[in-house]
Protein backbone atom coordinates (compact mmCIF):
# COMPACT_ATOMS: atom_id res chain seq x y z
CA UNK A 1 0.00 0.00 0.00
CA UNK A 2 1.30 3.37 -0.89
CA UNK A 3 1.54 6.23 1.55
CA UNK A 4 -1.28 7.93 -0.18
CA UNK A 5 -3.67 5.05 0.20
CA UNK A 6 -2.83 4.76 3.89
CA UNK A 7 -3.35 8.46 4.47
CA UNK A 8 -6.60 8.61 2.53
CA UNK A 9 -7.90 5.43 4.12
CA UNK A 10 -6.96 6.78 7.53
CA UNK A 11 -8.74 10.07 6.90
CA UNK A 12 -11.88 8.43 5.62
CA UNK A 13 -11.74 5.82 8.36
CA UNK A 14 -11.52 8.46 11.08
CA UNK A 15 -14.31 10.37 9.44
CA UNK A 16 -16.58 7.33 9.23
CA UNK A 17 -15.88 6.22 12.80
CA UNK A 18 -16.67 9.72 13.98
CA UNK A 19 -19.88 9.75 11.95
CA UNK A 20 -20.88 6.45 13.51
CA UNK A 21 -20.32 7.84 16.97
CA UNK A 22 -22.36 10.91 16.15
CA UNK A 23 -25.25 9.06 14.58
CA UNK A 24 -25.55 5.77 16.39
CA UNK A 25 -24.40 6.55 19.91
CA UNK A 26 -26.92 7.82 22.37
CA UNK A 27 -24.58 9.50 24.79
CA UNK A 28 -23.91 13.18 24.31
CA UNK A 29 -20.25 13.00 25.31
CA UNK A 30 -19.71 10.18 22.81
CA UNK A 31 -21.41 12.26 20.17
CA UNK A 32 -19.02 15.08 20.88
CA UNK A 33 -16.07 12.71 20.74
CA UNK A 34 -17.41 11.56 17.41
CA UNK A 35 -17.37 15.14 16.26
CA UNK A 36 -13.72 15.40 17.28
CA UNK A 37 -12.95 12.26 15.26
CA UNK A 38 -14.79 13.63 12.23
CA UNK A 39 -12.83 16.82 12.41
CA UNK A 40 -9.56 14.92 12.76
CA UNK A 41 -10.40 12.87 9.74
CA UNK A 42 -11.13 15.90 7.64
CA UNK A 43 -8.00 17.65 8.83
CA UNK A 44 -5.95 14.60 7.96
CA UNK A 45 -7.47 14.59 4.51
CA UNK A 46 -6.62 18.25 4.11
CA UNK A 47 -3.00 17.69 5.05
CA UNK A 48 -2.76 14.63 2.85
CA UNK A 49 -4.00 16.65 -0.09
CA UNK A 50 -0.97 18.91 0.15
CA UNK A 51 1.58 16.11 0.38
CA UNK A 52 4.31 15.67 -2.23
CA UNK A 53 6.77 12.85 -2.58
CA UNK A 54 10.31 13.60 -1.43
CA UNK A 55 9.57 17.16 -0.40
CA UNK A 56 10.77 19.10 2.62
CA UNK A 57 8.83 20.90 5.35
CA UNK A 58 7.98 24.45 4.35
CA UNK A 59 10.51 26.23 6.52
CA UNK A 60 13.40 28.07 4.99
CA UNK A 61 16.72 27.25 6.58
CA UNK A 62 19.59 29.69 6.40
CA UNK A 63 20.97 29.75 2.91
CA UNK A 64 18.35 27.40 1.50
CA UNK A 65 16.16 28.51 -1.34
CA UNK A 66 12.62 27.50 -2.05
CA UNK A 67 13.06 24.08 -3.55
CA UNK A 68 10.85 21.04 -3.34
CA UNK A 69 8.53 21.68 -0.45
CA UNK A 70 5.19 20.24 0.45
CA UNK A 71 2.26 22.53 -0.10
CA UNK A 72 2.21 24.87 2.93
CA UNK A 73 -1.28 26.15 2.34
CA UNK A 74 -3.23 23.11 3.60
CA UNK A 75 -1.07 23.09 6.68
CA UNK A 76 -2.06 26.66 7.44
CA UNK A 77 -5.68 25.78 6.78
CA UNK A 78 -5.50 22.82 9.11
CA UNK A 79 -4.05 24.98 11.87
CA UNK A 80 -7.00 27.29 11.52
CA UNK A 81 -9.46 24.42 11.35
CA UNK A 82 -8.05 22.84 14.50
CA UNK A 83 -8.50 26.04 16.47
CA UNK A 84 -12.02 26.43 15.15
CA UNK A 85 -12.76 22.87 16.18
CA UNK A 86 -11.41 23.57 19.61
CA UNK A 87 -13.64 26.59 20.06
CA UNK A 88 -16.72 24.64 19.02
CA UNK A 89 -15.72 21.79 21.30
CA UNK A 90 -15.39 24.10 24.28
CA UNK A 91 -18.82 25.56 23.70
CA UNK A 92 -20.29 22.09 23.23
CA UNK A 93 -18.88 20.96 26.54
CA UNK A 94 -20.19 24.05 28.29
CA UNK A 95 -23.64 23.27 26.90
CA UNK A 96 -23.34 19.65 27.98
CA UNK A 97 -22.65 20.82 31.53
CA UNK A 98 -25.83 22.87 31.51
CA UNK A 99 -27.91 20.15 29.88
CA UNK A 100 -26.76 17.70 32.49
CA UNK A 101 -27.60 20.14 35.24
CA UNK A 102 -31.05 20.71 33.77
CA UNK A 103 -32.12 17.18 32.89
CA UNK A 104 -29.83 14.97 34.93
CA UNK A 105 -29.07 12.73 31.98
CA UNK A 106 -26.89 12.73 28.90
CA UNK A 107 -28.89 10.19 26.94
CA UNK A 108 -29.86 11.93 23.71
CA UNK A 109 -33.32 10.41 23.39
CA UNK A 110 -34.11 11.03 27.00
CA UNK A 111 -33.02 14.66 26.65
CA UNK A 112 -35.13 15.02 23.50
CA UNK A 113 -38.14 13.55 25.29
CA UNK A 114 -37.73 15.82 28.29
CA UNK A 115 -37.35 18.82 26.03
CA UNK A 116 -40.57 17.97 24.24
CA UNK A 117 -42.38 17.56 27.52
CA UNK A 118 -41.09 20.92 28.66
CA UNK A 119 -42.11 22.63 25.46
CA UNK A 120 -45.59 21.21 25.50
CA UNK A 121 -46.03 22.22 29.12
CA UNK A 122 -45.59 25.89 28.28
CA UNK A 123 -49.15 26.94 27.63
CA UNK A 124 -50.59 30.02 26.00
CA UNK A 125 -49.72 33.31 27.56
CA UNK A 126 -46.71 31.86 29.25
CA UNK A 127 -44.00 34.45 29.08
CA UNK A 128 -41.63 33.67 26.29
CA UNK A 129 -38.07 32.92 27.28
CA UNK A 130 -36.23 36.16 27.27
CA UNK A 131 -32.58 36.97 27.62
CA UNK A 132 -31.79 37.21 31.27
CA UNK A 133 -35.09 35.73 32.36
CA UNK A 134 -33.46 33.36 34.77
CA UNK A 135 -31.33 35.79 36.73
Amino acid sequence: MSTGAVLYAGAIGLFLIGCYAMVAERHLIRNILGLVLVESGVNLLLVAVGFRENAAAPILKAGQSAGMMVDPLPQALVLTAIVIGFGVLALALALVVRVHQAYGTLDTREVARLMRVEREASGPGAAGPRAGAKS
Binding site: V42, L95, R98, V99, L114, E118, P129, A133
Partner: peptide, 26 residues
Protein backbone atom coordinates in the same frame (compact mmCIF):
# COMPACT_ATOMS: atom_id res chain seq x y z
CA UNK B 1 -32.67 32.50 26.61
CA UNK B 2 -31.33 30.73 29.66
CA UNK B 3 -33.95 27.97 29.60
CA UNK B 4 -33.04 24.32 29.86
CA UNK B 5 -34.76 23.58 26.54
CA UNK B 6 -32.67 26.34 25.03
CA UNK B 7 -29.45 24.65 26.12
CA UNK B 8 -30.58 21.28 24.83
CA UNK B 9 -31.76 22.66 21.51
CA UNK B 10 -28.59 24.65 21.12
CA UNK B 11 -26.45 21.60 21.77
CA UNK B 12 -28.27 19.53 19.19
CA UNK B 13 -28.04 22.39 16.75
CA UNK B 14 -24.33 22.60 17.46
CA UNK B 15 -23.73 18.91 16.84
CA UNK B 16 -25.63 18.96 13.57
CA UNK B 17 -24.05 22.16 12.38
CA UNK B 18 -20.55 21.07 13.34
CA UNK B 19 -20.96 17.83 11.41
CA UNK B 20 -22.17 19.92 8.50
CA UNK B 21 -19.17 22.18 8.80
CA UNK B 22 -16.85 19.20 8.73
CA UNK B 23 -18.54 18.01 5.56
CA UNK B 24 -18.10 21.46 4.08
CA UNK B 25 -14.45 21.44 5.02
CA UNK B 26 -14.11 18.09 3.30
Amino acid sequence: GGSAAGFGASLRYLLLSALGSSLALM
